[in-house]
Design a binder for these strands. Sequence first.
RNA 1: UCCCCGGUUGUGUAAUGGUAGCACGGCAGACUCUGGAUCUGCUCGUGGGGGUUCAAAUCCUCCCUGGGGAACCA
Length: 592
Amino acid sequence: MNDSTNKETVPVNGTAAGSATNPGTNPVEGPSDFIRDNVRSDLAAGRYDRVLTRFPPEPNGWLHIGHAKAFAIDFGVAEDFGGQCNLRFDDTNPEKEDQAYVDAIKRDIAWLGYDWADREFYASDYYEYLYDLAVKLIKKGKAYVDDLSDEEMREYRGTAVPDKYNITLTPPGRNSPWRDRPVDENLDLFARMRAGEFADGAKTLRAKIDMAHPNLVMRDPVMYRLRRMPHYRTGDAWCIYPMYDFQHPLSDAKEGITHSLCSLEYEIHRPLYDWFIQECEVFPSRQIEFARLNITHTVLSKRWLLRLVQEGVVSGWDDPRMPTLSGLRRRGYTPAAIRDFLSRIGLAKTDSMVDIQLLEHCLREDLNKSAHRVLAVLDPLRLIIENWPAGTVDELEAINNPEDPSAGSRKLPFSGELWIERDDFMEVPAPKYFRLYPGNSVRLRYGYIITCTGLDRDPVTGQIKAVRCTYDPETRGGNAPDNKKVKGTIHWVSAAHGIPMEARLFERLFPSERPMEVSAGTDWLATVDPQSRRSVAAFGEPSLATAAPGDCYQFERLGYFTADPDTAPGKPVFNRTVSLRDSWAKIEKKQV
RNA sequence: UCCCCGGUUGUGUAAUGGUAGCACGGCAGACUCUGGAUCUGCUCGUGGGGGUUCAAAUCCUCCCUGGGGAACCA
């Protein structure tokens, strides 16, 4: 990458609104990417003397991990240069925005560990300031009130057909007949627009730029439209609302934002961004664009996610299968794992599709360090120890976390009837299967070495009802005195002591790696895996009875499980956060 | 069609004219009271053609190819 990212340069002629923080340092340590390189050279060239970024969500939906990439960059770049990052709600469309979204957005940003302190701003607080700048442009002869309807405007702009797949040419635009209204008339009409004298859609305020510009967004873009609709913050104080292209650069300038980082789709808007700053003669913020995040097997688009919610495909924005931050949180993802992921995916202008396995890797790596190990059985099969002294209960010592000795240990009740995983027994063992089968020995985790002696079958269905075995009393704790090696160790829960619980097992919402790429005529919604959520009745060791929502455990040999908010005292509900890596599954797969 | 931006192993990302590296995945092995974790090794890449240069992923040129834009949304 080089400094030619932004070809347009704007003169440094404005003053920052905020007070300067630390002068920008020149971090040689830490991440380097094309944005930081540009920031560094801006500082070196004296274009700015500090760094101030902003994260500008529109409060019309919940944040997903793609937004997290964006604000991790906004906050991260600022921090690396000793600067700060503002939170600014980009709320200039009264039709879609709501306070509930503001609250959810703030909660999610804070959850990931980013702090905007008292720098919480709203574009809707700038309406008066923006109005004044619009008046300034009118006075300079750079803006005019237009009476064209939206269809007429599209036609005058040179847009042949709105269907983007069927456009054959882009002729130069034609000037609106109202383009050359005198300044005084424009001033008067604009004031009357604000006063509510005209119907919605009857008039707009447009920037006077160039109707023949090769970049369509430069063909006299709309600055204000009439919309009689109460805004969630300004109520009905206004009936004209500023457009993004006008509002955003000037909001940045008002806050003294040095680097306005956004996604690639705004690249084509940058000349306009610079134009408004130049013509309004305000602080010259600089827009730099980067590629948004895409992840395999999921969709990161507010519109798509909204549809999943509205059509009831998922239980809500926080469904554990959703890539929203609230969904990931409920699923059991940790802020540390997500931040690690975001630091690993890189930052560039290349459209990319990150493998979801990288996200899962980051999660496992984090959880492996911290999650307490417990024994739980998801698909219970009864195991009867034939030579166990009837009525006796043993107490076995179990390590809480082999990765963290300070986590200590706990006692596990053991008796003559246990639950084991149905998977851990095969009447006829597959090749390379070294768990329980008739005649074979395995170790019960932290318990005894047992040898399978047979099985009980339901006389009617033929289904296996129980597995029988004998245990070796000399192997208590799992160690054989004669150093006998057993290849397999399986987990278990004492039938008399295990507590019943619900486990929710999730698969990817979309079996397809790229769900957005569906063949024509297919609704992507139909490609959702209906089996992506399953609930099973499981048994857990007694310590699980006190699990509180948000508590995360590793169920040994199965995966990481996080208690859901649906958990009630004594009735835990667990979400499978992510499974453990399963090399047996690979072997099994290859055998098929 | 026009305008803008991209193209480095399967995926993502480094190398800023000088040995194409790292991570995830995959494959193979070691170790193990989780077929977990950990450790080791391996495979695989500069979209294509020309040019400049002692030397090109990097600079020039043509081509191919992917994405974005043409809202009174952001």
